[in-house]
Structure formats: C-alpha cells, structure tokens
C-alpha cells in the first residue's frame, strides 16, 4: 500500500446503480489463494465475451476512456464481502472510486487496500458523468490531505468525508494490523475482565 496525496486523472465512467461485487469480480475467480491478477478479471462478465474476446461496447474496452479514477452510479460495491473486489479494482490500476453512495463492507475493503472511496453528492456525480460524456478527457483532482474533489471541467469542488484515522493510514501507508498489534496488552487486559 503506497503513499497517497493528491492526483489528477481522467476517469472511467460507469453510470450504473447498485453495482454489486459479483459484477466487480464474479465468484468463479475467487479460487485464487493470493491477491495477484484480479485486475485482469475486473468486471469480467461485462468486459469479455464467452470466448474471452473483449465486449467492445463496455467502457473498459473503449480506448476513448481511461485513467485511475472509476466513477460509478450510487450504491457501488453492494453484496458479498469479498475483498477480491478491492484487489481487482486496485489491480486494474484504479486509485479511487467516486460514487454518491457505497456499500459498507466494500468501503472498508477499499480503504484497507489503498483504494480511496470518494462519496460525492448526487448532483456532483451527475455533472461528472455529463462532462465526461461531452469530453472524455475531462479530469478530476482528488486531494486527500484537504479532502476535496474538483471537477476540472466545471471548476466545481466538493469536500468529502473520511475518518481521520483512515486518512492518516492512507497518507502514511499504515494499516490496521499495525495498530491492533500495538494494542496487545489492552486486548489481554480486556480478556481478563470478561473472564
């Protein structure tokens, strides 16, 4: 998990609501025992035909669009708790997912893998889709330190929320296990208390 500060990128738009984790990474790809290679199967059933050839009408196969920010319709990541969804998004090269609403478990999984879920207003989301529609090279700038997201096409900016602890983790490349391991004594004290 690398350090994470400010970046600007064009976006990949996916204006569909309720994209569940079975779409992000179908169950048949969950047989792996490490975290590598899931990016190749990100959105596999929307992305490839049965024979493995690309479905040309799917956005990831359209060279017009590209970038390290995925922009999706509301309630992104619903369904299964599979962290493979976050590994697939990360593995494909996305650094952030922008939507007006995320499912809880996915949001945690994304943060635990250095993929930033950015919650924006429904209006902001609609405007991003519109500006990408008229100019596929339109960019967004995400500043984690200041918790802002800016549409460089419209100049509009919004602040987004992220808890201070998770923000520090992302900015410094730390993870939760480091924190929990530092609390071993307290855990053992708690166990004595409940015995």
């Amino acid at each position: 998990m690398g350090k994470y500060i400010t970046f600007t990128s064009s976006v990949v738009p996916l204006p569909i609501e309720n994209i569940d984790t079975d779409q992000i990474i179908p169950a048949r790809f969950l047989k792996a025992t490490n975290k590598d290679g899931f990016g190749d199967n990100l959105f596999a059933d929307w992305r490839y035909n049965k024979d493995g050839s690309p479905k040309l009408d799917f956005v990831l196969n359209n060279p017009t669009f590209g970038g390290t920010i995925l922009v999706a319709g509301k309630n992104f990541g619903s369904g299964s708790s599979r962290e493979h969804a976050a590994w697939a998004i990360d593995g494909y090269g996305f650094k952030a997912v922008v939507s007006s609403f995320f499912a809880d478990i996915f949001q945690n999984n994304a943060l635990n893998n250095g993929v930033l879920p950015v919650v924006v207003s429904a209006d902001f989301l609609a405007e991003v889709f519109a500006s990408v529609n008229s100019n596929p090279k339109a960019t967004l700038t995400i500043n984690l330190q200041n918790q802002t997201i800016t549409s460089n096409a419209t100049g509009k900016s919004e602040t987004f929320t992220i808890n201070t602890y998770k923000k520090e983790c992302l900015l410094n490349g730390l993870d939760d296990i480091d924190y929990l391991l530092s609390k071993k004594e307290q855990i053992e004290a708690y166990e004595k208390l409940i015995k």
């Binding site: 708790s81 962290e83 945690n108 635990n112 893998n113």
Partner: peptide, 22 residues
Amino acid sequence: FGIGTSEVEMVLATQCVLQSRP
C-alpha cells in the same frame, strides 16, 4: 457482521477488528 480478508487477518492476529459504530 461480514468482514473483508484484511479484517479476517486482523481477527486471526488479535481477535479484534476496527469498526466504525453503525
């Protein structure tokens, strides 16, 4: 509640998870 694999690792290692209060 359901958790992701990073959290599975946390529970295996420390019997704890970090969760925001719903």
